[in-house]
């Protein structure tokens, strides 16, 4: 069974952390992943940086620009990850925009992911219908789970469609925003979280965007299987570097 599915069966709320590969330093990738696992994080999204990250706010834009300047590329990332499964057991997901994968070749990219022990992909600008028609067979051939986003504006009908195509979890974007936007959830969000929880979807949900501390993590996981933290962790990296991982994770879990 795919590590993501195994993890989703565990009887606990999951903490998933996003970081931009190649940031703050080009060679931090492996140590960040190892530190995150050591400190009890359940799942990791490794951000493959892109020059034009449309769905991201300033923090991740910045880390992406710097990572690219540091020399991060698809090849470099794959090379850094070549022995990752010798030391790391939690699910690893690559999150990135479609163009770099498209240039690498979608099939070649998926094949490489399988070789390295990557469990899934999140590609915000690959629409679900294009995935369904053109790429699903390839992803499945290499045992990869593709994770789709839903937002407060996504219609019930479309959520059902996305649920039917998904085979891992659904990434619930907390509010209409780019990454790293707000602090705290209001009534609008909780109403949306409740609405989705009541839909009884076949896939469990993990909430992301706007989760930055213990309070928002707790709020989100009241309604969902887990939560994803991105910008807040990237900001912490900016200040404290790859070794600051442990202190960050503790502030969330306490």
């Amino acid at each position: 069974m795919n590590r993501i599915n195994q993890k989703l069966q565990e009887n606990k709320k999951l903490l998933s952390i996003y970081f931009t590969a190649g940031y703050p330093n080009i060679n931090d990738t492996v140590s960040i992943i190892q530190n995150l696992e050591k400190n009890g994080v359940d799942m990791i999204e490794i951000g493959l940086p892109f020059s034009d990250p449309l769905a991201d706010g300033p923090t991740i834009q910045d880390s992406s620009t710097k990572a690219l300047k540091n020399g991060m590329t698809t090849e470099v990332l794959f090379d850094q990850l070549k022995d990752i499964r010798k030391t790391v057991n939690i699910p690893l997901i690559i999150m990135g925009y479609f163009n770099p994968m498209f240039q690498y070749g979608v099939e070649a990219f998926c094949k490489k992911c399988q070789e390295l022990g990557i469990d899934g992909l999140i590609i915000p600008d690959l629409p679900v219908d294009v995935y369904h028609q053109e790429y699903q067979a390839i992803f499945e051939k290499y045992g990869l789970i593709n994770v789709f986003l839903i937002t407060p504006q996504t219609s019930d009908e479309r959520i059902r469609y996305i649920d039917s195509i998904s085979n891992g979890f659904i990434y619930m974007v907390s509010s209409a925003s780019t990454t790293g936007a707000q602090s705290g959830f209001g009534e609008e969000q909780t109403a949306y979280f409740e609405r989705i929880a009541k839909m009884n979807l076949k896939n469990q949900q993990i909430i992301g965007f706007g989760i930055s501390n213990n309070e928002t993590f707790t709020q989100a996981t009241q309604y969902a299987k887990g939560a994803i933290i991105g910008s807040a962790f990237v900001k912490h990296m900016t200040k404290h570097g790859a070794d600051g991982t442990g202190t960050f994770v503790k502030t969330i879990q306490n």
């Binding site: 479609f98 915000p124 600008d125 629409p127 294009v130 986003l149 839903i150 504006q153």
Partner: peptide, 11 residues
């Protein structure tokens, strides 16, 4: 062509 947009823009 096509519409390669994040889900947030779909509606």
């Amino acid at each position: 062509g096509g519409a390669f947009i994040p889900e947030m823009l779909y509606p």
